[in-house]
Design a protein around this nucleic acid. Structure first.
Length: 135
DNA sequence: GCCAACGTTGGC
DNA sequence: GCCAACGTTGGC
C-alpha cells in the first residue's frame, strides 16, 4: 500500500466539508506532476489531508476509493481525478513547523516542493506523522 | 525548440 | 502584502 498527501485550502475545501461529504472526487488538479501521482494511486491507499495557507497543518486521513479517471471539470480533457473518503481526523493536527523541525521528515515533497498539491509520503514519514498526530 | 514574460501557489 | 518557486504561454 502507498501513502500520499493531498492539500486543499480550507477556504476552498476544508476537512469539515470533507467529513460532511464523506466522499468526494478530487477534481481541479491542473498540474502534471500532481496528476501523475494521482495516476499511481490505488484503491485502499491512504492520504493525509493538509490545510494549505490557512492552518498549514495535516488534519486528517483519507482513503482512495476510486482510481484515476477523467475530470469532467477539465474542458481540455487532459487531467483526471480520484475519489477519496474521509477516514479519521488526527487527534492532534501536525503542523508544517513540526514537519520541518523533524529531520526524518525533511525529504517530504511538502517541504521540498511547497507548490505540489499531491505528493507521495514514504512509509517511515507516514508512521512518524501518525505518531505525532496521535493515531 | 528556446526562452522571456507572465500567472499562480503558498510560506512567511 | 511580499516574494520565491515553478509551471505555462507565446513570440521568434
Amino acid at each position: 500500500m502507498n501513502h500520499w498527501l493531498m492539500k486543499s485550502e480550507p477556504g476552498a475545501w476544508s476537512w469539515d466539508q470533507m467529513v460532511a461529504a464523506r466522499t468526494t472526487n478530487w477534481s481541479g488538479v491542473r498540474n502534471n506532476a500532481a496528476a501523475l501521482h494521482m495516476k499511481h494511486m490505488r484503491r485502499g491507499d491512504l492520504a493525509f489531508f493538509y490545510h494549505s495557507n490557512e492552518g498549514k497543518e495535516i488534519v486528517g486521513i483519507l482513503e482512495i476509493v476510486k482510481e484515476y479517471y477523467p475530470d469532467p471539470t477539465d474542458e481540455a480533457g487532459r487531467f483526471g481525478m480520484v475519489d477519496v473518503k474521509a477516514v479519521r481526523p488526527l487527534k492532534t493536527p501536525v503542523t508544517l513547523a513540526q514537519i520541518k523541525a523533524d529531520p526524518l521528515l525533511k525529504n517530504l515533497p511538502l517541504v521540498k516542493q511547497s507548490r505540489l498539491s499531491v505528493g507521495p509520503v514514504d512509509k517511515k514519514s507516514w508512521k512518524t506523522i501518525c505518531r505525532l498526530g496521535g493515531v
